[in-house]
Design a binder for these strands. Structure first.
Lengths: 289, 289
DNA sequence: GTTCCGCATGAATCGATAG
DNA sequence: ACTATCGATTCATGCGGAA
């Protein structure tokens, strides 16, 4: 029925209609932003964006398991001196559609796009909106705990003008690949702000997010063997995160060139050996709400 | 007419009606949040919040100078497992009222309130919504510059031969073209994410923010001698920031106990000596938009 | 095997210019 | 008048190659 670990080329809504009800554990996606990148992607007009997205989110709600979660990464642009409001309107419309707006995570970008303008600073954050079908959803908080070092006690004890200055700390990201960094350190739960760098290497896709972004939410909201859906797959970053974390993925992508690119990226990924001790075993399972 | 450097006790809208048109350079405030608990402040019911705030924002729009700025520090809380939507609705309503929604700054709290819940992490950010009356507003970006990142030590400490040649020939594109501009550079412009610690000092007020928060916006949007209004003064943090930065303040506060508290806090503040060289002099003045 | 250095690039935005 | 295109501006990161 549902072919796992594959990318389906086609129109998002049409493909979604072929997927059974209540079978996906997590949806993570970053849809094309309004009126953006007309050259590289299909541009959506600002005033049509909500009407364009609602049929998609209706299908997403159908295919998501009752205890599953939908994470929507999006950020409105500045046009004519103002921030656009379509994301706000989308949140309100999705609630009318029956979604619960559980939380708004902030992706604080370490390396945001450069530039200077007379009326605004560089935009260094994006929204990661959490939607759920019901108040009770799966959440494995222990799997994303972050280390905290001695330095934090010193820094937090002294508040001064330097607190206004740049954050040079590496805590808050907590995505250190080297486990040895964690030794001897106390771990704490993270907050709803993720401090990550963008990956600006050659990705071939203009709208790529770092793999640690989906990885964080996949660890938080799924277990090994669960199914993750990305209805706007792009260059396949969500799929890569799934493979690295031993989750199943289902991707949808409208443009052939990105399907090819995603398959190329996926082919490079090393499958992890199955850990002897699953990170999210039954004793860790927390049913939230 | 308008009595400067004072706190006026009374109902916010009523007091605002006594203030002349177009006389305030910056409005910074953190209004009472919508809440069902009514014991700490005058609680505003969630479903009445927008209707309650719109008459206030209408008066604020009247008293603000055309080139002034309104910064609204606010964050919806989670109720019944969901984030409340009244802030989103307020933004949309204020735009219909004629405000421009110029930007959304994020206050990323370094040390946010502790706690643990099964369905969400600690909330480590608040919105600082920027509204303007027109596209052209005053902005003094140089007054809030921050130290450049560590990468510059390695990259810029020793310029390579190719860097120097590229500079002489004035060819190439992008960053490298003006590499000489980066020699000796120590500060850069900030982003729209403020990474500040919270203050634990103001225990007497339920909704206190650190003085560096208003200070940052006051430096960014006003000059010395300008007038800053806080229509929900609380414990007087905005006034303290004004005094330290040699700006005039006008505060409004409904509750007598907070008026007393604010006056006490203000009395402790050391007035700065007037600097010989104003930080924002006329040559630095930038009219944005 | 590490460390260091050069370099390309990234969901940007505004104002001016051209059609 | 209104839209489309283009140049100018700016900062931090990861990658690949060299030391």
């Amino acid at each position: 029925m549902l072919k796992l670990d594959s990318i389906i080329e086609g129109n998002c809504t049409s493909v979604l209609q072929t997927i059974p009800d209540n079978c996906v554990d997590l949806i993570f996606t970053s849809p094309p932003y309004a009126d953006n990148r007309k050259n590289t992607y299909q541009g959506i007009a600002i005033d049509e964006y909500v009407d364009w997205f609602l049929p998609v989110s209706a299908e997403l709600k159908r295919v998501l398991k009752p205890e599953g979660t939908f994470i929507l990464n999006i950020k409105e642009r500045a046009v004519n001196g103002e921030r656009q409001t379509y994301v706000l309107e989308l949140i309100l419309a999705m609630r009318r559609q029956g979604w619960l707006w559980t939380e708004e995570f902030i992706w604080h970008k370490k390396n945001c796009y450069p530039g200077k303008w007379p009326n605004r600073f560089r935009d260094a954050w994006e929204r990661c909106l959490q939607f759920n079908k019901q108040k009770h959803f799966k959440m494995y908080q222990e799997s994303v705990m972050v280390p905290i070092g001695d330095w934090s006690n010193k820094r937090l004890a002294r508040l001064s003008d330097t607190d206004l200055k740049r954050d040079e700390s590496r805590v808050g990201s907590g995505f250190g690949k080297n486990i040895s960094n964690w030794l001897g350190k106390e771990v704490v739960y993270p907050t709803n702000v993720l401090h990550l760098a963008t990956e600006c290497a050659n990705r071939g896709h203009s709208a790529s997010f770092p793999v640690v972004l989906p990885s964080w939410f996949i660890k938080l909201f799924t277990n090994q063997g669960d199914i993750v859906l990305d209805p706007f797959m792009g260059s396949g970053t969500t799929a890569i995160a799934c493979i690295e974390l031993a989750r199943h993925y289902v991707g949808i992508e409208a443009m052939h060139k990105y399907c090819v690119l995603a398959e190329q990226q996926i082919a490079k990924v090393k499958r992890p050996q199955i850990p002897l001790i699953p990170e999210n075993n039954s004793s860790d399972k927390v049913y939230a709400g």
